[in-house]
Design a protein around this nucleic acid. Structure first.
Length: 408
DNA sequence: TGCTCACTAAACAGAG
DNA sequence: CCTCTGTTTAGTGAGC
């Protein structure tokens, strides 16, 4: 079976996506962060309001960099008809997503009808964003900056209706990304969460700027000019932390299931060996690669070993490519993954699947000085603004401003 | 052409 | 027992 490049919607007989859509949306809206229902209601129609007619040139659109502008950024605060029009502040801290029932269609009303239709088409087509970025956006969008997979599904379904009609394989990919991508971190959600299955996932603050950069690189080449990385890649010791977005709510947020002020609430890998790195390699290659890999610029300040990673890899491929540093630097992380053996998978419990205590990774604690929080948020807002994404903070500011201007 | 990355599929284990 | 979640491996296509 070959890889399915671009999951064909028709391939999907059952549409758990649609089914889960509601669940997911509910999760997104009323999930960990809990957004007001009303606002969620305003946000949700997108998926169903779309014209799901025949999508034409999918492939073409997948590579269209305008896609982000046409779909996301307009959905985000950049555009909405609403921002100036007094749309209520988005429930989302980051995006003003479909605050208006008219959604993107209205948002693009100023543009030609063709662009409007292409916009709808592209919403039905596979987004040119990697799953990593989708997940990232989903998590960032959540008030608590952490989401369970189900809500991540929901967010993706909500904003990318393509997936609602796509085979369910994408969920697997999402999970796969969460697991392997260093940028995402699992947070035990025992606290406050009743019968939650699974964990919450948040963005590793250390990787957030990289994700943002990747996002910008991938979709906002123009913005990239403003965000030219420093001549010398920041090292872990020197990165402008104030420029980092905060992945998780780093303050103890009572509303947040993710209370990072609690040492035990966030487990972060302390041992690089434990990290499956979906991105670490890309991180280290950041300077050499750019737009093609969504996470290519990652890790300039990341936690990965600072020394250059040996290029030669014992095996290529797949997700393996993402945690090369561990493989090469630390030897056999999982009992010789670097030496792939044709042994039947899962044949022995002592293999890779030996349960690690708290999941896949030993976690390291995330500690960010509270006083940095505001500073971080400010800077994060700037970054997101550059990327066409606004934080709630900025949102409030700007909506107030624009209201003033409108009144004039 | 080779390498790397992203994606997809699948198997599997554990928890609910 | 089933479903969901999380992990891991394998394979492929695309981009550089």
């Amino acid at each position: 079976m070959g890889p399915i490049v671009g999951m064909s919607p028709d391939k999907k007989a059952e549409t758990p996506g649609v089914q889960e859509d509601r669940v997911g949306l509910r999760g997104v809206c009323g999930g960990p962060g809990t957004l007001p229902e009303a606002e969620c209601g305003a946000a949700s129609p997108l998926a169903t309001s779309l014209d799901r007619g025949s999508g034409g040139s999918e492939d073409e659109e997948l590579t269209n960099l305008n896609w982000l502008h046409e779909n996301l950024l307009q959905n985000f605060t950049l555009g909405g008809p609403g921002e100036a029009g007094g749309a209520q502040p988005s429930a989302s801290p980051l995006f003003d997503i479909e605050g208006d029932p008219g959604g993107p269609q209205n948002a693009s009303s100023s543009s030609s009808s063709s662009s409007s239709s292409s916009q709808r088409d592209s919403l039905k087509s596979k987004p040119p964003l990697s799953f990593s970025l989708l997940i990232y956006m989903a998590i960032e969008q959540s008030p608590s900056k952490s989401l369970p997979v189900k809500d991540i599904y929901g967010w993706i379904l909500q904003h990318f209706p393509y997936f609602s009609s796509a085979p369910t394989g994408w969920k697997n990919s999402v999970r796969h990304n969460l697991s392997l991508n260093k940028c995402f971190r699992k947070v035990e959600r025992s606290l406050g969460k009743v019968n939650g299955k699974g964990s919450l996932w948040c963005v590793d603050p250390e990787y957030r700027p990289n994700l943002i950069q990747a996002l910008k690189k991938q979709h906002l080449p123009a913005v990239h000019a403003f965000c030219t990385p420093p001549a010398s890649p920041p090292r872990a010791s020197s990165p402008p932390r104030h420029l980092f977005l905060q992945g998780c709510s780093l303050k103890g947020d009572p509303d947040s299931p993710l209370d990072l002020s609690r040492p035990d609430s966030v487990l972060v890998s302390s041992d690089p060996k434990q990290d499956h790195n979906y991105s670490s390699m890309a991180l280290q290659r950041c300077s050499s690669r750019s737009s093609s890999s969504s996470l290519s610029s990652l890790d300039e300040g990341g936690p990965s070993p600072s020394h250059a990673r040996p290029r030669a890899r014992p095996r290529r491929a797949g997700s393996e490519g993402f945690h090369s540093d561990e493989d090469s630097d630390l030897g056999d992380e999982r009992g010789g993954r670097t030496h792939p053996q044709p042994t039947p998978r899962r044949s022995s419990p002592s293999s890779s699947s030996v349960k690690r205590p708290a999941g896949k990774r030993a976690r390291r604690e995330v500690t960010v000085k509270p006083e940095l929080d505001e500073e971080l948020k400010e800077a994060a807002g700037s970054l997101l603004h550059l990327a066409g994404i606004r934080t709630s903070m900025e949102l409030n500011k700007h909506s107030a401003k624009s209201k003033k201007l409108n009144r004039k």
